[in-house]
Design a protein around this nucleic acid. Structure first.
Length: 273
DNA sequence: AGTGGCCCCTGGCGGC
DNA sequence: TGCCGCCAGGGGCCAC
């Protein structure tokens, strides 16, 4: 599941792969719903002949800007990735969009078809809905205290709410709460100032660790999100996610998995209070 | 306004 | 072992 560290890794790798400032020679689409409502004809018409001039990450979005003032916002959702392929290579079964350049092919690869790309001249409509970037100075104690005080939702659900903090997904949410020793069922408003400070510290640490490890690659094919087909290494550092029944590294009590807000949630009921 | 629930998909895994 | 059925999971949208 690509979250902030995985999208960040992709973003830097794609820039290194030299996809910017090269003309898009062709675009093909295998699953039209991926285009989020735009027709194939319009999508191809607007992109063929143009170039991407910048690429950034915002939350879990990859944001490509084109030389004709359009933004291509890519959200990988569950199983998406972007892969660099050699010219004349065969289309893989799950390649949903192929962008052909003179020197390579960029694929939006997505087995489960949840991923979406939005081509728009106004990226703010989507990006302004997102909350703060957690690895910037915008995530402050003051900001989070204000947001948390307003809701009785479980803190786990609030961490996943992209309109509060952008980029945290299920894996990093569980790992962060374990590191901060906060029970995921606690209501957001119940956290005190010290706990919020700790939460912010570990949000930043867990996400930074994830980036340093080039992301978390779970499973076989689907966890393989990277543009070059390699795997990240952060899965080796997980302490609770996917560890149901295994002993907690602190207290040896079995890690539990329960559902919070329709999301599987892994935690230690002893250490996280 | 805030919040909970449903839905999209299909690979992979659990259960028998 | 092999097969079948079911579930995970982000976020948009709808209902309350």
């Amino acid at each position: 599941m690509p979250e902030l560290p995985e999208v960040e890794t992709l973003c830097t790798d794609l820039i290194k792969a030299n996809i910017l400032n090269n003309q898009i020679l062709d675009v093909s689409v295998d699953w039209e719903k991926t285009l989020n409502g735009m027709s194939l004809k319009e999508f191809r018409g607007k992109l063929i002949g143009s170039s991407f001039i910048s690429l950034n990450r915002r939350g879990k979005y990859l944001v490509f800007k084109t030389d004709n003032n359009l933004y291509l916002l890519c959200h990988l959702r569950m199983s998406g990735s972007m892969r660099i392929k050699e010219l004349n290579s065969q289309k893989d079964k799950h390649d949903r969009i192929l962008f052909t350049f003179k020197h390579l092919i960029l694929s939006f690869h997505d087995p489960r078809k949840f991923g979406r790309v939005t081509l728009t001249e106004n990226s703010d409509v989507i990006l302004n809905k997102l909350g703060v970037e957690p690895l910037t100075g915008a995530l402050t104690k003051e900001y989070l205290m204000t947001r948390l005080q307003k809701t009785k939702r479980p803190i786990k659900s609030v961490l996943l709410d992209q309109s509060i903090i952008a980029g945290i997904g299920n894996i990093y949410a569980d790992e962060t709460l374990f590191a901060a020793k906060i029970n995921p069922f606690r209501t957001a408003e119940s956290l005190n100032e010290k706990e919020i400070e700790k939460l912010i510290y570990f949000i930043k640490e867990k996400l930074s660790d994830g980036i340093r490890m080039r992301g978390t690659s779970l499973g076989k094919g689907e966890g393989n999100f990277q543009s070059n087909g390699e795997f990240g290494h952060n899965q080796n550092n997980l302490l609770v996610f996917g560890k149901k029944g295994k002993p907690c590294v602190n207290c040896s009590h079995p890690i539990e998995k329960k559902i919070i807000g329709q999301r599987g949630t892994h935690y230690c009921p002893i250490c996280q209070t």
